[in-house]
Write a protein that binds this DNA or RNA. Structure first.
Lengths: 154, 154
DNA sequence: GTAATCCATTAGCACTCCTAATCATATTGG
DNA sequence: CCAATATGATTAGGAGTGCTAATGGATTAC
């Protein structure tokens, strides 16, 4: 298979991803005013365990100051809490609160439901195609970020 | 096929799209400082023909004031031009300039190349799967936006 | 010809994002 | 053991996107 195919996939990705992002952002805004995709990614990471601030900045590919500001915003809303690490007092642990968990659940549920409705028009074959395609897509990008995270942190 | 599959696809989409968006944003920033995904979408639309400001706002699902501001930013960079419509003087036509065309080409080429590299690790079967999946994905969301654009413009 | 409508802009606010500079805490080397 | 260096978070300052509400023209409808 010629590499032209891969170029074509890139072009298509570049077209489609921002489109989907817009739909998702609009959905989120609608389901909980003031919430942004970044907040949901953040809360999604914190759902399973606490992380340090720098760790979160790396994960989301933003600078430390940006993460600090964003955390302050979510802290004011009562969705996350800061806690100084006791063993290394330079570190700050960020943990999700009950309210944060609730906000995350609500937005995820609303957006997921809306997406599911969009997908209900698909026939089974197309649905299967989409599912496999997404898996490939995730693997490609997840591998890229893991193998060379620094590339995306500057 | 049970609807659970479609719910699973939604969940996966919600996970993956922001990840890809981050990679793409980082790429764009790197290839041309100050440029944002929204700019590229905008210039991409203007590449083929001029649009009115309100038209662009609808297409990108942002409010008219937001679009007006963004156009002003791009105008200052010399990437687009404003022109009052002569037949209906309420309208403003936005057109891409040579410099805008060049900026668009540069960023698209850089980001596409980077994506293509990421994809070069894929075997042919996975590449084909991805290509089909993206087509389905685009159709789902494009249909949604066309059929009910108002839903995403508030 | 006045009222209603439509399109773009301005004003003002919240937020993300950046870099550079600062502060506190740990670690390392002489 | 203490000074220099490194590390993690924050503050300051600036650019940008996004919103709603209000304003100003231009057009259409009655």
């Amino acid at each position: 298979m010629p590499n032209t195919i891969r170029r074509e996939i890139s072009r298509r990705t570049l077209d489609i991803i921002p489109l989907i992002m817009r739909v998702m952002s609009a959905e989120m805004r609608q389901s909980l005013p003031g919430v942004q995709p970044g907040h949901i990614s953040l809360l999604g990471i914190l759902r399973y365990r606490a992380h340090t601030l720098g760790d979160l900045a790396d994960r989301l590919s933003v600078s430390a100051p940006t993460m600090s500001n964003t955390i302050s915003t979510l802290e004011e809303r009562g969705w996350v809490g800061r806690r100084r690490a006791e063993d290394d007092r330079r570190l700050v642990w960020i943990e999700i609160t009950e309210a944060g968990q609730a906000a995350l659940d609500k937005v995820e549920d609303n957006v997921e439901t809306r997406l599911t409705n969009l997908l209900s028009d698909l026939n089974d074959h197309d649905a299967a195609t989409l599912a496999s395609g997404l898996t490939v897509l995730r693997d490609v990008f997840a591998t890229a970020l893991e193998s060379d995270p620094k590339l995306y942190n500057e």
